[in-house]
Design a protein around this nucleic acid. Sequence first.
DNA 1: AACTTAACGGGATTGGTGTCCCGTTAGTTG
DNA 2: CAACTAACGGGACACCAATCCCGTTAAGTT
Lengths: 203, 203
Amino acid sequence: MEQLSRVAGTVRPGGRTARVRAAVLQATQDELVEHGFHGLTMDQVAAAAGVGKTTVYRRWGSPAGLVTDLMTELADQSSPHADTGSIEGDLRANALAVCEAVNDGRLGATFQAMIAAATCDEQAANALRAFYRRRVEEWAGAVELAVERGELPKGTDAMEVIRAVSAPLYYRLVVTREPVTPEVAERSVQRTLAAARAGAFIA
Amino acid sequence: MEQLSRVAGTVRPGGRTARVRAAVLQATQDELVEHGFHGLTMDQVAAAAGVGKTTVYRRWGSPAGLVTDLMTELADQSSPHADTGSIEGDLRANALAVCEAVNDGRLGATFQAMIAAATCDEQAANALRAFYRRRVEEWAGAVELAVERGELPKGTDAMEVIRAVSAPLYYRLVVTREPVTPEVAERSVQRTLAAARAGAFIA
DNA sequence: AACTTAACGGGATTGGTGTCCCGTTAGTTG
DNA sequence: CAACTAACGGGACACCAATCCCGTTAAGTT
């Protein structure tokens, strides 16, 4: 899809192009909330955004392309890790952040759409990987600080700890499709912590 | 979808109907391997199965319906838990089974399709939940035996332990789309075990 | 073996998605 | 501020999935 390369490095990035993109991404999110990824049609997005259908096809090519662009937009918004002073507090903050995000109507629909898009489009899959890589890297800092403070053993794989906290939440969200509650988040934190303290995350 | 209720409790379940169903499910799996869930068209399935297109629409209604029926078929095939004598061996057997399943061309494609179908169809989501509930229940027995043997503390939530072992694997498969290797499986086993031994799975 | 009817199959029809063509709009440049 | 052209927009068109109609096949019944 070299349509997306155009999105990234537009030849003429001035006012109108940017306005159109903003309107289209906004409309995409609205449609995702209402109909989900599978119900996302280029036609409706164009109409909702008040732009020509041709334009949407030209620049994004497919529903997956729309979601991919939305994803890169979200990826650019940094979410720095919490610093509550203890690794337990930091991991809890992370787990609750995921919990709130997937339960929020707007963000939750977008997250699910991102995952659905990744199952049918390689570009979307790459964007999703990049998105989570960045998120995990940002939060890994909290684990590294904990190691320095002596809360966790030396050699603990920081990124794996962060992944381990959210894995059960996404497992419920995507695979078993059970509710992702704060209680589930807390249990995930405690289990991950127990394993980490026991040295199970040493590379 | 009362089409599916017909599949389950067919009025005339004799030879032809069963033959058609077998041929269609077979063709569905073939198509999934080749094109994935999003490339699954009723038309091609009908052609590959050598049955009328009308029949496929009548009985299954949509690609999601096809995958849902395939899922119930797989759910009926029991996969009794291993009994290696130690909880570590049993959990390892479970993790490796998941690992092999998702990496197997045929089964892996079906698993991914099941998850994709669940994201866009409520019936499929229910079938997926039922599928995993059954699988988890069967393997929970291994954990209960381990508790009786004294390998894990009393009160350990058996089903949660099984879920915890596979969560990181599915997380990689669906969310970050990284390879699911035997090494990843082993790490998941060790971390889950460490947490379980520390009592983090006591309800 | 004759009868009934559930289930299947072929072919026509339709509705909507995705593409194409070409005129218009509005950033950009000098 | 005038010329240039990237990007947009409307409308026509092609194509394919999904539905419908109705005749045919074969499972189940007596």
